[in-house]
Design a binder for these strands. Sequence first.
DNA 1: TCCTCATAGTCAACTTGTTGAGTAGACATC
DNA 2: GATGTCTACTCAACAAGTTGACTATGAGGA
Lengths: 193, 193
Amino acid sequence: MALRNAILAMLLDGESSGYDLAKGFNASVANFWTATPQQLYRELDKMESRGLVAARIVEQERRPNKRLFSLTDAGAAELAEFTTRAPKPTAIRDELLVQIQAVEAGDDERIQHAVADRMAAAETKLKRFERLRDRLLGESGEAEFLATAPRVGPYLTLARGIAFEQENIRWCEQVLAVLDRREAAGFGGERLG
Amino acid sequence: MALRNAILAMLLDGESSGYDLAKGFNASVANFWTATPQQLYRELDKMESRGLVAARIVEQERRPNKRLFSLTDAGAAELAEFTTRAPKPTAIRDELLVQIQAVEAGDDERIQHAVADRMAAAETKLKRFERLRDRLLGESGEAEFLATAPRVGPYLTLARGIAFEQENIRWCEQVLAVLDRREAAGFGGERLG
DNA sequence: TCCTCATAGTCAACTTGTTGAGTAGACATC
DNA sequence: GATGTCTACTCAACAAGTTGACTATGAGGA
């Protein structure tokens, strides 16, 4: 249900192929929803058969043909209806946090590595998001943009993504500092059962 | 896989029943993983049959008997092994963000309501987390605790939860401010197709 | 020339997560 | 005395998400 509506929301930006959507919903790019390509192709077929999106085949030279999907009136109505329903509460669900929760019973070194990797990924993502924001804002400052732009939804979700990644980075730094200090103090390596 | 390990990580705090775990993994309480009761009972049975946890039935007066689960050596080994594997990258997946992305094509008023609800929920959760942190810290300050406590994992995941909810609150405030101002400026109610 | 990457998908099998209902006793509240 | 809430689950059905393999073409580099 939510995936369906996330796709409809993406199509507000204009028609696009399953492949394009897959790039947008990729975990390393997305700032409001994620999905794998398989999920998208499957869902798009269902949505087409229900008339929520319209598909049009575009023949291309030098590369495979593609199907471009666009919002139909029924799709827009469905999306509008979705915005009237109470959204599900969200909570964190993160394998790295599970590992940190169990850090004293696990492999210190590997976990520190994982935290460093996560921090690097967050930094990359943050930079991407900031470039995206600059492109969205164009010449205007934030206040002007928010007052005059026809759409602010994408800007606001992007703002959430930026804040999330900044928080991620700060937290990773804290964790690394704490684990380093404890290792130096002789807490490293020891296992709790 | 991750749920299994999240359960094992919970059992580091001592034996507990499915019902108790369900409370801990409840979306409004959890700071590192969530699960429904059904998921837990199902997974616990599987884990018991694989020897990762041991169950013991405790007969109670005035209330139903319960099965208390505890970590076995095999379970602890599985959890340790899990900490050596690279965790999956996580991304935001939030119905409210989908609604915000589509705010210009949706129902302004209801969305503002949903944002206000989310903010209230985040405040409740933040307070709960802060109380939990105070209990964890006890008499010690943060620096002392981090230097001397036998386990810091639960503290670090709690810190992530706290930061997440604070960010949530800030973002909700921003969104409400922006939507209010746009409504006053005459952007409200109008729909984009 | 081979190898990899990017485009643009499809198919099948599997694992995870969600929803709703049911059971059953004890206690509190109106 | 009826209703609701808390403990402590179980069962069944369904929806959503993941994994891995496969097809096909063209471009760019080693």
